[in-house]
Simulated scan of single mutants.
Amino acid sequence: MTQDLAYIIDTFEALVNIPSPSGFTQSSIEYVKKEALSFGYSCEKTEKGGLIITVPGKSDDTLGLSAHIDTLGAMVRSINEAGTLNLLPIGGYMMEAIEGTYCNVHTRDGRTYTGTISTTMPSVHTYDDARTLERVPKNMIVTIDECVSNKADVLNLGVQSGDFISLDPCFVHTESGFIKSRHIDDKASVAVLLGVLKSLSDQGSVPKNTLKFVISNYEEIGHGSSYIPSEIKEFLAVDMGAIGADLNGDEYTVSICAMDSSGPYDYELTNRLIKIAQEKGINYAIDIFPHYGSDVSAALRGGSNIRGALIGQGVHASHGIERTHEKGLQATFQLVMGYIETGF
């Protein structure tokens, strides 16, 4: 394993264990900021809490690269008389993907309580309809790990409607090179971009173009990079490659997305990424993701005058317990480095 890849995986593990559902990303943003500052690069926060890292280049022509730090999660909707919590999801996932998941409830005054997400009929030994109950938010609850028996007990803990719920990532790195975890989408790509920053810093490299690394914090709910600095002319979203029955990518490749639910990505820039992958012998796939949007999608909807493209390591079972491989992370890192070296 290369030093760059080892750093990326270690950084991903650290990041994925920092709770950060959309709207609750302050701690993870601070982690990224601390890393970027340690490499000698300036940082600024956006008004909505995202982060922009600047790498001065030989030219003022500016390339933007993005990854999003926010993840799926939930929020406390209400408290039941039995002392359990009703929830509403943050981000788009199947309720089946969180059934049985350990979680944390984060109060507005800074306390954290552990718990478990289940259906309202969590045992086949007790409920006739446990198997057939529809898995929808109204049928899901959180049972917190405190000695509570009613709503008043829960309120006395400081838990209330509007508290954030984060999901246990369940991170595992296998000897065969697989990384299994929630939130590979997209903390793995944040780690890739930090790996790029570390590599540039270690080499003392001054890129051809000035670089703006945009770490967005609301991508999972659709408006992550709706604002980006106006000097950015090209914008590359580093996210994830979906894996499915009629798709070409896998966990060992970097996916280059030609089109997603927001429409086609920039023809010239996408072609240039394909050419870079071919010339550098990077394992890649070209795909279309009809149920997908990205930070580039948000930037374009926000009115940015940019050329945009989307890449990312192939991820199995996205928005669930996801899986990718070291080779996919390495290919994504290599393509980002190749893109920066080529510039425009």
Score class of each variant (00 low, 15 high):
residue 83 G to H: 05
residue 286 I to D: 04
residue 78 S to M: 05
residue 217 N to P: 09
residue 230 S to Y: 10
residue 87 L to F: 03
residue 135 R to W: 00
residue 94 M to I: 01
residue 339 Y to I: 00
residue 344 F to R: 14
residue 7 Y to K: 08
residue 22 S to A: 14
residue 266 D to N: 15
residue 221 I to T: 14
residue 231 E to M: 08
residue 332 T to Q: 11
residue 161 S to C: 05
residue 209 N to W: 01
residue 148 V to I: 09
residue 255 S to M: 04
residue 72 L to S: 04
residue 172 V to L: 14
residue 54 T to W: 04
residue 170 C to D: 13
residue 31 Y to F: 15
residue 222 G to E: 03
residue 196 V to I: 15
residue 320 G to N: 10
residue 71 T to P: 13
residue 172 V to W: 09
residue 229 P to R: 02
residue 185 D to G: 04
residue 158 G to P: 02
residue 210 T to D: 06
residue 185 D to F: 04
residue 328 G to Q: 03
residue 13 E to C: 12
residue 278 Q to D: 10
residue 179 I to V: 15
residue 118 S to Y: 03
residue 225 S to A: 15
residue 249 G to M: 05
residue 220 E to F: 06
residue 300 L to Y: 05
residue 341 E to V: 01
residue 320 G to T: 00
residue 320 G to P: 05
residue 56 P to R: 01
residue 153 D to R: 03
residue 153 D to I: 00
residue 313 Q to H: 08
residue 318 S to E: 05
residue 242 A to L: 13
residue 36 A to W: 05
residue 320 G to Y: 01
residue 62 T to R: 07
residue 15 L to G: 07
residue 77 R to M: 12
residue 73 G to T: 02
residue 48 K to I: 06
residue 116 T to M: 15
residue 328 G to C: 03
residue 290 P to A: 05
residue 77 R to K: 15
residue 298 A to R: 07
residue 224 G to F: 04
residue 343 G to W: 01
residue 261 S to G: 11
residue 121 M to R: 15
residue 36 A to Y: 07
residue 313 Q to N: 09
residue 158 G to C: 02
residue 104 N to A: 11
residue 117 I to V: 13
residue 284 Y to C: 01
residue 281 G to L: 04
residue 20 S to C: 13
residue 145 D to P: 05
residue 83 G to T: 00
residue 330 Q to R: 05
residue 247 L to N: 10
residue 8 I to Q: 11
residue 107 T to D: 06
residue 255 S to Q: 10
residue 141 I to A: 10
residue 85 L to Q: 06
residue 174 T to C: 12
residue 205 S to G: 05
residue 333 F to M: 08
residue 246 D to Y: 12
residue 237 A to N: 11
residue 288 I to R: 14
residue 331 A to F: 07
residue 106 H to C: 07
residue 308 G to K: 02
residue 212 K to C: 04
residue 5 L to Y: 06
residue 37 L to Q: 15
residue 14 A to L: 10
residue 121 M to S: 14
residue 2 T to E: 14
residue 328 G to T: 01
residue 243 I to H: 10
residue 108 R to F: 11
residue 257 C to R: 07
residue 126 T to D: 12
residue 118 S to R: 12
residue 29 I to E: 09
residue 327 K to P: 08
residue 79 I to D: 08
residue 91 G to F: 06
residue 57 G to R: 07
residue 206 V to T: 15
residue 46 T to A: 08
residue 344 F to S: 13
residue 301 R to W: 05
residue 63 L to K: 07
residue 57 G to L: 03
residue 49 G to S: 02
residue 105 V to P: 14
residue 317 A to E: 01
residue 188 A to P: 05
residue 312 G to L: 00
residue 267 Y to A: 13
residue 130 A to Q: 04
residue 275 K to E: 14
residue 126 T to L: 15
residue 183 H to G: 01
residue 92 G to E: 03
residue 104 N to S: 15
residue 293 G to I: 02
residue 245 A to S: 13
residue 243 I to A: 09
residue 53 I to H: 04
residue 220 E to R: 12
residue 19 P to E: 02
residue 342 T to I: 03
residue 105 V to E: 08
residue 165 I to N: 11
residue 166 S to G: 09
residue 207 P to V: 00
residue 288 I to N: 11
residue 48 K to P: 04
residue 122 P to K: 02
residue 75 M to Q: 12
residue 226 S to W: 06
residue 270 T to Y: 09
